[in-house]
Design a binder for these strands. Structure first.
Lengths: 216, 216
DNA sequence: AATTGTTTTGACCAACTGGTCAGGTTGAAG
DNA sequence: CTTCAACCTGACCAGTTGGTCAAAACAATT
């Protein structure tokens, strides 16, 4: 749209592709084996690149990991924005829950990396938690508190409501192995994802006494 | 009680103590760093034992890890039993949720190790998932289905209800770093744990339309 | 065609880590 | 006191892994 973009040269294009390939492959490996368990060699092999090439684009393993985590955080931000503070509880929370379920389905590896990171004390993302996440959380707590004061929902502790939404939705990504095992060894299909989303949304919204738009 | 127990010799006592010390220390390290990230040397150092001594009691790192996981599974079984299939929904689910919250508080490291294991594809516990966990889950699904049929709760999908209970309660252990960060950097105190438990129980029970024993 | 900066790569290294082992120590039993 | 098995430990080893480097291949520019 805006400026006069130089026509992407062959070099630039390849660079972009290689970077994306490495990041995607690394994400899977970090998700499946953890930071220490994932090896540069294994990532390189799967990406069909020599290991030295990885170090050309990402000087250290930690730097590669950082960028993987950063990508994930942006996805999280994307979902965060869908929590519309202007909407009514049913719409704001419903949309947010649905969005989080979609992310659990479309970015299971990212979710696992994030979970791993938090479980192990969040050494890398600690700053995000203290700044961006905390601000977002505080602002939503305010909104939820207002809803409760206005009688639109029960007077629940907003913090625990948010934790419930986070844990329940992310569970479908983070614990996918357990879930598919209990699902006869196969992952959820479209219908099952839809049902999970509906079920989670319904229980939570009813659980906090949301006044539904369509009482039937 | 039973047979004629030989009076525990000094040897036996020391052995028990050492085993317990190693297992407890290892649990923390596996929780904080993952299987690969935890090192025998670090575990030995914290337990103030020479590394070779660890290998005397646990021939390999994998064997040590297995026994850590096994202990955790027994704790899980303990909670599982508290889901009384004879009781009414409010009591059965309420007791179960409360028990799980207690475990999240008393065994945060164990919960983290378990989460880690599942996130990474459950290589060690896969058998448990397919046998014990599946059987338990199936039996509870039956009970919940019956409750729904009898009109004691809404016709929710029992599977998702169980997932919600698991994820919500375990979240307080697995994501404790995130939670304490959002709690001003300090872990929950007694009152906060009590409120979390109550809040989670209330939302879930109300969310599935449990007919409460005491309607007020 | 020559030049220049970027990218690619095989070979290599130092640090770390799980595991071994031989020899020493200790508690219990006779 | 002697004997013996259980227990403890410092020193060591082999395999793995993150990271380096010099040289080669390559794309763009003049």
């Amino acid at each position: 749209m805006g400026g006069a973009n130089k026509p992407t040269s062959k070099r630039e294009g390849m660079r972009r592709e290689t970077l994306a390939l490495i990041l995607a492959t690394a994400e899977r490996h970090f998700a499946d084996h953890g930071f220490k368990g994932a090896t540069m060699q294994a990532i390189a092999d799967e990406a069909k690149l020599p290991k030295a090439n990885l170090h050309y684009y990402f000087p250290t393993k930690l730097e590669l990991y950082r960028q993987v985590v950063e990508r994930i955080f942006n996805i999280w931000l994307d979902a965060a924005e869908s929590f519309d503070t202007q909407a009514n509880p049913e719409q704001a929370l419903g949309t947010y829950i649905r969005k989080k379920m979609e992310i659990s389905r479309s970015h299971p590896y990212g979710s696992k990396v994030w979970a791993n990171e938090v479980i192990h004390g969040a050494p890398i993302i600690h700053d995000y938690l203290e700044t961006t996440l905390r601000e977002w959380t505080d602002s939503r707590i305010e909104v939820i508190t207002r809803w409760a004061a206005e009688g639109l929902i029960d007077p629940v502790n907003p913090r625990h409501l948010l934790y419930m939404i986070w844990s329940t939705t992310q569970h479908y990504a983070d614990f996918s192995h357990q879930i598919s095992t209990l699902n006869g060894g196969v992952p959820f299909n479209d219908a099952q994802w839809a049902q999970a989303t509906e079920c989670v949304t319904n229980i939570i919204l009813k659980g906090i006494g949301v006044k539904r738009g369509d009482p039937g």
